[in-house]
Design a protein around this nucleic acid. Structure first.
Lengths: 228, 228
DNA sequence: TGATTGCAGATTGTCTACAATCTACAATCA
DNA sequence: TGATTGTAGATTGTAGACAATCTGCAATCA
């Protein structure tokens, strides 16, 4: 009687207009269509989405709370720029959370879920072979998204994604991937091996180390960018 | 020429109306004046604060993003109720963050900051002696607030406070403090000792254990409440 | 009797209009 | 010339109005 896949109608009925607008604006930011530091014009967005400014303002407040934009009184909202220092702060937290994620996935993930992870890693290997940096990056995001999902803690998923968005914002400055994404995938494989062995402590340790290494790669890229 | 302490004028000039309203509503929720699960009436709040509904709605969107309220389309927003399961999820994350906080404070906190912590712990001891549960609770919040501040990671402070607010929401149901708050303060002292010795690993371990014990006390109280 | 329908009041969702403020540029004065 | 002042246009902040939706209750019908 009802459709299995949610229709547009259902989406509009379930989500409010500000909610939908929020998702759209977030995509604009994360895809870089709204540049870092850029001023966000309310009327312009209202026209673009065919609404009045009210829903736009509500969406922007939510995005401000999730630190994707900042707001100055009487001057409007701006796309946030993440400094190296703040990225470092985020990595500090992320390392702790990644350890937790590693542990939980080793404890809780089903065999099928582990196979899903292996599939993504295999796809990343393929991306490495053809030097598809962009494809690798997307797959990498998917991999870590799956991981936090499989950890089975919805609040953790929320927190983790929030932090990740902050790092994405940083990445948009073009300072990411300081070489060696093949190395990164080697680390993924080691973690998956620990998952297979259900070695919670080791999986946690390895995933944390992966985050540490990722931070180091970020620093390397930032230093290279600063040098020129 | 200018005042050292921010005046009301400066506050209004710096923060926008929705921002101020957001803080007020948050206080209403955290102080329990808006009951858990209760429907939040926009017009009522608008009258209360002497504004139109626009700023109220913006504030509520921000509070929704920080998970203090939830919103149902065409039905309005409700004060969120945190289940034991969700409190458990939060504690999972909190344990990881507390370990990080313990490490960082041991590494970074100044002597003066450590003395501040000792002062609060002494005040808690006094509260224990006169069985002032409410006073102890407030001091305990202050203690952990100082801790995360002294960890010197603003993003961590933000994340931690967000989670803590969620637990406060749960605590409002009267299910907190499953006995023995004297024990809790003993744990505080042990952590401070590790700070004094600048033993980062130990401080992290102890503060994590403190969170674990706190979770156990929460469970005990929840079980007792469920039994009656 | 029990379920369904229809209505009135209340509440939310959205839009439009207007006031307050900012920004950029031109005009003025030392 | 350089700094200051003044003004026009654009943008944000807020209010108020109206439409859409929900809720509870009474009336109706099988």
């Amino acid at each position: 009687m009802a459709a299995a896949v949610p229709t547009v109608l259902q989406l509009v009925q379930a989500n409010s207009l500000p909610g939908l607008v929020q998702i759209e604006i977030e995509q604009l930011i994360l895809r870089g269509e709204l540049a870092i530091g850029e001023h966000v014009n309310e009327s312009e967005l209202a026209n673009r989405f065919g609404t009045s400014r009210g829903p736009i303002r509500e969406a922007l407040r939510a995005l401000e709370e999730s630190r994707l934009v900042r707001s100055e009184k009487n001057r409007g909202v701006f796309v946030r720029e993440i400094s190296v220092a703040e990225a470092d702060e985020i990595y500090d937290i992320r390392e702790a959370l990644d350890q937790l994620i590693g542990q939980r996935v080793a404890e809780r993930a089903s065999q099928e879920q582990l196979r899903d992870l292996e599939t993504v890693v295999a796809q990343m290997d393929a991306a490495v072979r053809v030097q598809d940096v962009k494809g690798y990056h997307a797959l990498n995001l998917k991999f870590h998204d799956l991981l936090v999902d499989f950890a089975g803690n919805s609040r953790l998923t929320e927190s983790y994604r929030l932090l990740t968005k902050g790092l994405l914002l940083f990445r948009l400055r073009g300072l990411q991937d300081g070489g060696g994404f093949a190395v990164s995938n080697t680390e993924h494989k080691a973690v998956i091996e620990a998952f297979g062995a259900r070695d919670s402590a080791k999986a946690g340790r390895l995933l944390r180390q992966h985050a540490v290494a990722s931070r180091a790669r970020m620093h390397k890229a930032a230093a290279a960018a600063a040098a020129e």
